[in-house]
Each structure stands twice: as C-alpha cells, then as structure tokens.
Design a protein around this nucleic acid. Structure first.
Lengths: 111, 111
DNA sequence: GGGACGTGCAACTATCGGGTTGCACATAAT
DNA sequence: ATTATGTGCAACCCGATAGTTGCACGTCCC
C-alpha cells in the first residue's frame, strides 16, 4: 500500500539493529568528535578490546552508517550521514501514522 | 554538554532495542490496523505462539510503545504514540548533528 | 455446575551476539 | 635488517533472547 522500494525495509532493519547497541552508539559519538579515526584509537577510548570495536564497526558498515578507507597500514573510519536518512524517514512516517490512526479512533469514540 | 534529561537516553535505548526485532515491528503494524486487540488474536496472524507474542508485548510495553488494559477475561493492547517521541527527536538530532559535522569537515578540506 | 476460552506462570532449548585471547601478516620507523 | 605498530582471522566463552511446551487459574456462556 505504501509502495516501499522493498529493499528499504531490510535497510531500516539493519540500521535499527546497529543503533540498538549502546557501545555502537558511543562509537558513533566518538566518530562525530573525531572523523577519520582508526579502530585502535577508538578502542583506547572505550572499555573493550580492539577486536570488539572492529566487529562493531563491521556492523555499522553493513548498516551503511560508517565507511573505512585504508591509509597505509591503518584504516580510518568516518561517518556516513546518508545512512541515517531512510531510517529517519521511516520513523517519522511511523509516528505520524500512529497519530493519524489515533485521531480516527478518538473521533469514532466521540460518535 | 547537550543537557540531556538523563533518563531520556535509557528510554531511547529501550525503544531502539524494541524496534530492532522484526517480529515486534510486524506486531506494531498489526496494532495500527486493529487497535485494542488481544494477544491471542495477534498470535493468530503471526507464525509464532501466543506466549512469544506476550513476551514481545512486554518488551514493547517496557519501551512505552504499547499499553494493555484488561476487559473482562481478556487484555486488549493499544499503541502509545507518545512512546516514539523521544526517540524520533533523538534520531533527527543525530542526523542533523552529523550533517553539521560533515559540513565543517568539508569546509576545512577546502581551506 | 460444567465446558470453553483466554490469560499467567514456569521450565526448558537453542541460537545469536558481544566480548575475549592468541597469533599471523603487513607496513612503517630506526 | 630489525623492531614496533596496526590490522586480519579464528576459535572460544558466556549471557541474553526468541522460541517452545505444559499446566494452573480466572471468566464468560449454556
């Protein structure tokens, strides 16, 4: 009914899963502060091992929220703002959908 | 620095975790279509048992996305649109924060 | 009262996800 | 050439979670 581009729904799912983890959210915060940072550097600022960070970055990358590009022997990770777009849209659409639905119910209740 | 109301961040986390599960999302969709529905009814429309549904509804309730009120021997569940508000705000703030940050970086790169 | 229907609680299983350690490999730096 | 630093890969541990089944209890209907 809403004419979804189909792959969109899976993309949103990936982003939601990615954002559901607190360590991953902290990671994104760190990336806002310092762009193009290496996994090792990030690990120094969080209470988990570098490999844990790498796994998290892989999840964020799969969700399209982050990219890593190689510079010599190190890999610098950066944010990817466009990765949030679809999910932000999905979420506000959900919210307005709920509100509209609720309005209908309320109106019906008053009849 | 952003003067968060503190408990807000945990609330957002709960909502993100709740939305991360596909079955839970389908459940919310069903609730948009039919308000004030019982867990048994919902179970009939999904490929999982009633108890699984009940657990999911408990998670959604803890996240503030849903409420159940008792009517006789049955419990009817309804959406709770306000539960989305904080998370929606959090997310668009995140998006605009990223964009601003990116703009700064771009400007610096051109200098 | 007695069946039917819906809910609540508990135990149990199995998979997934976040985290760890250990080591091999590649790229700098001296 | 040797050392140091950073990445990549694999095996493993453990707690959380999505799911199940089974049964007891409350409530409506005849």
């Amino acid at each position: 009914m809403t004419a979804e581009p189909d792959g969109e729904v899976e993309e949103v799912g990936n982003v939601l899963v990615a954002l559901a983890d607190p360590t991953r959210r902290r990671l994104l915060d760190l990336l806002v502060a310092h762009d193009a940072v290496t996994a090792t550097t990030l690990a120094a600022r969080l209470p988990v091992s570098r490999q844990a960070i790498v796994k998290h970055l892989a999840v964020l990358d799969a969700a399209g929220l982050v990219v890593g590009h190689r510079v010599g022997r190190e890999v610098r990770y950066s944010l990817r703002p466009a990765g949030l777009d679809a999910t932000t849209r999905w979420m506000s659409a959900l919210a307005t959908g709920w509100d509209r639905r609720l309005a209908v119910i309320k109106r019906a209740a008053e009849a």
